[in-house]
Design a binder for these strands. Structure first.
Lengths: 187, 187
DNA sequence: GTCTATATCCGGATAGAC
DNA sequence: GTCTATCCGGATATAGAC
């Protein structure tokens, strides 16, 4: 039995990725966990504190994944594939990513929440840049432009690809084809 | 003096692109136009009817742009540049595009509104595909993959590029560099 | 076509008992 | 740590006067 605080973060994250920050309520979480509205406010006094906790949790999860991949000496291609797989998993659950969901709502978030969304984005982008630069040195990747821009192209396709995939019955195929194209173009 | 109905669509569109569908209210529109809540309900009985009208208006605007560009015999490059310019204009107003905003909220929209978002997406993608295929025939573009996938890559970068641009003080530069990279890669 | 007024409901948040 | 009960504001939407 995991503790309530962790469960709240888990359920709230799913709701944000499915419906968006301004479309879910404490009541939605309460229904799923069979607790009351007030119990959630005990753990997270405000909705802002909840979304901040969610984004810090996202960052932690990503850092752990990166650490794990590196400790297993995964190749650059395998690391990028692991990132793609995260998105394939989200799509299977009819969800988009946190960057896309909270990114489109960013103007409605409190400043301290905006910062955490941005931090999460920087984390993904820096990781991707590192992979690309390393791959260029080892020779698995060949691209002329700046790694920053190349990383942006990949992230943009992940974020938007999963959004538009929902337009067509959560179709994975175009999403996969698009990501494969990007990968083969630089190898 | 344009009529009220048109003004409501104009203001509501801006609010959706800035804050999102679930973060704006009839009261927000009313304040800007100095009218009352009920006056908006006269023109648009439900919020769903309003967002449907907004998306149909977006489609109409795009169709008119396409028609105009073609009547002026604009080149493939110039047509793509016109699409980029639309996004540069949005970014200058601290807005994202309708596809990104309503796409991330799609699960919270009524079915008839979901369809219009999808229709708008298809319109943009088909236009882009047509430009790419024509350009390949005339020789200005050289890409090996399917035009469908190439069009997806470009749209994805437009949709997500403008979302992440807001993370960093609405910085146009990375957005422009990314789009230029995509364009030069296929020319 | 716009107004005032209001109905109805739901949101985030708090007080205080257990 | 969770509950019941409640406050308060805001949201969509409607009725009926002008």
């Amino acid at each position: 039995m995991t503790d309530t605080k962790t469960e709240i973060i888990r359920v709230a994250t799913g709701l944000i990725l499915e419906k968006g920050y301004n479309a879910f309520s404490y009541a939605d979480i309460a229904k799923v966990l069979h607790i009351r509205n007030a119990a959630i406010h005990y753990h997270f006094p405000t909705k802002t504190s909840l979304v901040v906790a969610i984004m810090k949790n996202q960052q932690e999860g990503l850092k752990n994944l990166i650490k794990e991949l590196k400790s297993k000496n995964k190749s650059e291609i395998e690391q990028i594939q692991a990132l793609f797989d995260l998105y394939i998993g989200l799509l299977a659950q009819k969800q988009i990513c946190a960057l896309g969901s909270l990114g489109s709502d960013i103007q409605t978030l409190a400043p301290e929440a905006q910062i955490e969304v941005k931090n999460d984005y920087e984390l993904v982008r820096n990781w991707l840049m590192e992979i690309l630069e390393m791959g260029k040195i080892t020779g698995v990747f060949k691209f002329q432009c700046d790694a920053t821009i190349q990383a942006s192209v990949i992230i943009n396709n992940l974020i938007a690809g999963i959004i538009v995939a929902r337009f067509n019955g959560f179709d994975k195929e175009t999403f996969k084809h698009t990501m494969n194209l990007l990968l083969t173009e630089i190898t």
